[in-house]
Design a protein around this nucleic acid. Structure first.
Lengths: 337, 337
DNA sequence: ATGAAAGCGCTAACAT
DNA sequence: ATGTTAGCGCTTTCAT
């Protein structure tokens, strides 16, 4: 391996000068600079990044904790993170936690062992145990897309979930769909609560309330959406519309509804959340809330970067705007009964 | 930061003993081991991984080059890689290249600067330029899911693409669907050629040939599948079945076909490739080839691990088995005309 | 503008 | 079984 020493010999200068030439060329006379660059070239020298990092005490890497990379929404967020990270000179270490706390801990620990300079958590847990206080107080941390269940002053980058759910529900009410059902995510999730609150907001404004029996929890998977819909269809009064808290559950629900021989949206309207790419290609197209996934990721990475730089954040809580996307899965009920 | 020196003082031993206690406890007497562990505990010591890596000259990290993490197939492959990597004690650096050669190069370079110990390329390019010869000859490399266009002896982990396409085509022929069309991926891709060859194999076996006008290239996106289908439907003789080289294009094609007022599979059958989760929830369910995505990833990582260990690989070319998944998007044509 | 030299924290060869 | 010590390759004072 070509080291800085070899290059320094080649150029007839000290290693310090080589280092300077590479990182602060303006500190070196044009003449030597020339000579050094020459030597670097001919030796095919590449600074050992491992040594650089060690010497500077920084890893130039961040860990992204994600429950599942294969989730189409998260993978877009990660793309955004990755783009911004590259722009900031950081590498992204993938921490697919599979929802397991011990894996979260294991990855988060990389922050304590200097393998990573910061953490982005896309789930709602943090810190993971009392012993993690060290972690929490030492390692730059940003929460994105979710919100830590027990808030403790970490920066958060999220969608206006409540506003989005309110707008979506209002859209359904405007179509005169009053008997609503909701397929939620895990009940402990703060964003699930936010979205539920938004739905309540809109209903309240219309003098309506949500029947507790019409709220079923899924786990954000297609299958769970399918199963939850089956449960809703068994109830005596069929809902006129189902708001699913992500597109995948909506897709599962649609498949279930079709199996029951019902038409969407004539018999029952369906709405999702996220606006994943498939949402535009379902039959019928899925009405949903568009989340700026890549932008959420970029924003989170930018905030983390500032934290790592020691720059104070302008705001701890960043809320990005949603966009209601109306497609054909929602329409006014035609057969009044 | 707590260093090994502090711990050694605390335990009244040398740093070497601390190091040994942590990595090779059996080399240390039970007594001192006890004392050292005690000191480690009370000091809350965590070995600096950056220093460890630097000292050992290994980063314990691999770079995964992927055109797009948000692709549902790739993200599953990456999950598999990640799982196996963690089991081997390696971290995964995400290299979303967005299909750009310069980003590929930039990430691959991490192999040369010791930031990564190995590379997994999920696309078909490598090495990226003549100057990359150094890379190619120095850094452990595995190719997965694709095949380097100009083969040069790198390990490959892939599906039996040709066999899969042959089986799928045979399935269509068995349904008496003879007028086939194909929506391919980019023409330069080796796996596209393999799949095309597989289709030809089956057709040839039935004494049929593929009409060149019935082969349209997409780019693996839903929209491109949609557009390619539109093109196919314009032709004088409508195909009886369309084989799409991934599920997303199949989904796009299905949406286009519905827009034309045609029924699937009665008027036209559709088949995909990959068996992404959504394939089970389309209307009708999509007949496709199941790829063991996670397993492809795990296998690739295992091969890379062996390479990094210097263990010779049992075989350079690993071919994983496909599985034909028949759903409702393919059926014998009912209205003979 | 440049060089000498002291680390960064850990590992491992060598000595005891 | 344990300690001493010399690095790993680079950065960064501190001199000159």
């Amino acid at each position: 391996m070509t080291t800085i020493r070899i290059v320094s010999k080649l150029a007839g200068v000290s290693t310090a000068t080589v280092s300077r030439t590479l990182k602060n060329p303006q500190l070196v006379s044009p003449d030597t600079r020339q000579r050094v660059m020459q030597a670097v070239q001919s030796a095919g020298y590449r600074p050992n990044q491992l040594a650089r990092n060690f010497s500077s005490g920084k890893a130039y890497a961040v860990v992204v904790l994600v429950p599942n990379v294969a989730n189409p929404f998260f993978s877009r967020v990660i793309r955004g993170i990755e783009q911004e990270a590259q722009a900031c000179g950081y590498a992204v270490l993938l921490g697919d936690t599979q929802g397991s706390v011990s894996r979260e801990q294991e990855y988060a620990r990389m922050g304590l062992t200097s393998q990573a300079d910061g953490l982005i958590q896309l789930d709602s847990r943090y810190p993971f145990s009392p012993e993690d206080r060290e972690l929490a107080s030492t390692v730059p941390f940003v929460n994105a897309c979710e919100r830590i269940t027990e808030p403790a002053g970490y920066p958060v980058v999220e969608l206006d979930n409540r506003g989005a759910a309110r707008a979506l529900t209002q859209h359904l009410l405007d179509l005169n769909l009053k008997r609503l059902a909701v397929i939620t995510g895990p009940a402990h999730s703060p964003i699930v609560r936010d979205r539920l609150a938004g739905t309540q907001d809109a209903l309240l404004g219309a003098g309506l309330t949500l029947d507790p029996a019409a709220v079923v929890a899924g786990d954000f998977s297609m299958q769970s959406g399918h199963d939850a819909a089956a449960q809703l269809l068994q109830q005596p009064q069929r809902p006129q519309a189902i708001f699913c808290m992500n597109d995948e559950m909506a897709i599962g629900a649609m498949s279930c509804i079709r199996k029951h021989g019902l038409r969407i949206p004539q018999d029952i309207a369906i709405a999702g959340f996220d606006n994943i790419e498939y949402a535009g290609f379902t039959e019928p197209g899925l009405t949903t809330i568009d989340q700026p996934a890549e932008q959420l990721g970029r924003q989170a990475m930018r905030a983390l970067y500032q934290l790592m730089q020691g720059t104070p954040l302008a705001q701890q809580h960043m809320m990005l705007p949603y966009r209601l996307v109306v497609r054909d899965s929602t329409a006014a009920i035609t057969d009044k009964k």
